[in-house]
Structures are given as structure tokens and as C-alpha cells.
Amino acid sequence: MKKTYKYMFLTILLALVFIFGSMVGMNIILQIRENQLLSESGIAVIESPVRAWQGRADGTDETDKNTDEERYSLTTMQVKDVVERWNNRQGEILHNPVEGQISMMEAVREGEEWLKLIGMKEEVYGTDTELNFVRATLSVGMQKDALSAPLEPYYSFWTVHFSGSYLDAVLCLNAVTGRVWSARITIYDNLPQELPYEKLRQFVEMAGLQAAEDTISVNEEGMQAVLMLEDNLLYAQLKYQNVTIEDNSMVEYTSNGLLHDRYVIVSYEILAD
């Protein structure tokens, strides 16, 4: 009988040793693994989500870049793909410019030029108005599915942010064509009273696209204007939003810390049909 109890005791003891021994063993191994992971260092190669520009389909010599002719142009289908991907993005992947894409300086200059031509710089608001470049980032839109191969460079956009005393502007410029295909302008002073729909055609021309018809459609409320583009695959949209801050609501400040209880948002977009 004593022997039976001895073996029973031995069994229980061994079982406990196995159980706790395996726990301790695993903890030790995990600790070692953690130390390995948390002491990792080295050089990482950042793979660009876009590849370098492959050249024009018609094989034009790239030394033509100094002419007035556009260096890089996209077909309407390409523009449609790009716009769809950008507008349906679920996130953005920042990256450095690749060959064929404009630099940050060029993007900022193009943005400033666009704002000037569209009528948002000091010519409209006076010389006291300052509209300064704040920040620019180059990114490509992220979809639900992971990228299996690098995309074409024209899928990237420069998002350029300008800010002034009475105005904020966020422009999206296509990284290859350098054209503004989306703009959101928040105006805090000299508020436009109505939708400036006549600027829509100018926006389309400055985007390097062609309108399909002369007529700009304006909705009943006068808050939205649409202009169909060539091939009817795309259209340009201009929206006007007049925002009034109610009492006890969040109040909007500009980057200069000025208080505004009323502002207008004017947004320009190229959208796919």
C-alpha cells in the first residue's frame, strides 16, 4: 500500500514539475525572443509603392521637357483610374518622389500658381493677406487589398497645404502631371456669398482636361455645380458650403489663432462618372 501511495505522490509531483517547468521554459524562450525583437537595428530598404515613369507611349524624346508641350500626359482612362483610386482610398502611403514625378518645390510652386490664377491670392484679398505654404506630402492611395506590385507613378498625389490669415487651402496635385485635381479652400473673411461656378471651367482647364460641353449644371440650392468632361467618363464638381457656428459649439480657428464663427468652404474636385 505504501508503494502505491509513493507512486501516486511521485506521479503528481512529476506532473506538477512538467506543468510548471513547461510554463517557465516557455516564458524564458519568449523573454529571449522579446529581447531579440526589441534590440533589432539595421538598415531598412523602403520599397516605393510606385515605380519610375516608363516614358510616353508614343516614345517622345524626354529632352522636349523644356517646350510648352506637356511632358507627361495621361489618357482619360488613366485619369479616371487615378481619380477613382484616390477618391476611394482607405489610407495613404507616403513615399519619396520617383523619376517622372515632380519634386516638392515644383508642387509648391504649381500650387501657388494655381491659387493665384483661381483668384485666391493677394490680388483678391489685398496685399495684407498672406497665404503661406505650410506643408507638402507625397502619397499614394491605399486600398483594402495590399499592393501586389508597384503602381504607376501617376497614382501619387502631392497634398500641399497653404494657410493664411483668412484662408486655408489644401490642394491635391497629380505627381506626374503636376496639375491640381482637387482643392478645398476654407475662407474666413470676404466670404463669397454664392457658388463661384464660373471658376469651374477654369479649374478644368488648369487641370489639363477638356470639358465635354459648354453648360455647367447648378443644383437648385445653388450649392453645387457640375461640368461633364470629354468622353463623359469624368466630371468636375464645385461645391459651396456656408458654415455658421452656433452658440456653444466648437469654434473654428485659423492657423494664426484668429476666431471665426462663420466661414465658407469651396471645394473643387475631378470625379469619375
Binding site: L37, E40, S41, I43, A44, I46, E47, N96
Partner: peptide, 15 residues
């Protein structure tokens, strides 16, 4: 690490 190459960056995990 001189950072000359645009596609390479250095990193270190520190505890």
C-alpha cells in the same frame, strides 16, 4: 550610416 541612398533608412528598436 550616411543616408545618401534615398531608398534606405536606418532604424533601431530601443528599450
Amino acid at each position: 550610416f550616411d543616408g545618401e541612398d534615398d531608398v534606405q533608412i536606418a532604424f533601431q528598436i530601443f528599450r
